[in-house]
Design a protein around this nucleic acid. Sequence first.
DNA 1: TATTGTTATACTCTATAACTATA
DNA 2: TATAGTTATAGAGTATAACAATA
Lengths: 175, 175
Amino acid sequence: MTSAAPDTSTAVTAAAAMRPFSRSLPMSLLSARETSMRFFRPLLAEHELTEQQWRVLRALGTHDADAGPVDASRLAEMTCLLPPSLSRILENLDKRGLLTRTIDPTDQRRSHLTLSEKGQAKVAEIAPESERRYAQIEASFGVQRLAELLAELDALTIALDAHHVDAEEAVHGDD
Amino acid sequence: MTSAAPDTSTAVTAAAAMRPFSRSLPMSLLSARETSMRFFRPLLAEHELTEQQWRVLRALGTHDADAGPVDASRLAEMTCLLPPSLSRILENLDKRGLLTRTIDPTDQRRSHLTLSEKGQAKVAEIAPESERRYAQIEASFGVQRLAELLAELDALTIALDAHHVDAEEAVHGDD
DNA sequence: TATTGTTATACTCTATAACTATA
DNA sequence: TATAGTTATAGAGTATAACAATA
């Protein structure tokens, strides 16, 4: 190679130095999520629910009451939704009568969010078919194998979250 | 239980019968993706790229030329984008001079999509810092452990995709 | 007649900032 | 002063259908 080589040789080299697109974690996670969501999207569409609305209903529907009441901040974290997005989803579900909001007596800024009876019925209506489709996923990949994959995914999330908590503390540490 | 039991008892039971929200595959995949994307979002924002635009650049940048040219259909599949979304992203990248489109001589409906020199330079500019952040993920979770997780994710995607290919064939089988 | 890709349309979510009410 | 939650705003992607050009 001589100095007559075009500038782009650097670019090509550097791009080629990246891990292949197909072997990147975010992409593998997205592909896996897309293929798994394909099992559920038609079902949600039948019930006129977006994925995000369903996440909220589902989170509230299976929330363990022993774990304390759910407020908007906590629900946003659970469902991977930003507060403004959640706010509008809650407004929508509230209008449809699926949601009950009660103000926290000890802190009037907070609301305790629960499913209304209608909301519980909606989840109950969808649950059997949802579980049936989930069982197809388990059957295709193996129940045990899927359980191990879930455990690894959760371990990854915890490991990486710790990373960001560190970063956040560093920011506040400047105060 | 008597006939006096309220209707909602069924609802509550069925909702409780669902797997916990935190143990559902789509949710675990989403959480894992969110935490991993947190490593890259600030970087992409610095370069004024959305996640989806970056997926396209990245797919084209590391595409193996031996695997044949990339057309829009194939790129949509690779990047998990719907054709209309991809169409606008390509328009955007084209306007920014990052993209080259050449019409397939053997089928004039198709375009062959590649990075322009500027596009290659853009990817090369971002790649080192992107790889640095990826290395942090590997360090947090373990290189080997992450590789195994990726392999399982890809196996899952293949297993579930086969499911949908079957379903699609069944539809066309009615013709 | 089917396929590739774009355009049209309506809706939803994302993201950031600003704001209100409460603590 | 800080926090919980909503509202404002701009922008982008999602999803379906309809369309033009090509095969």
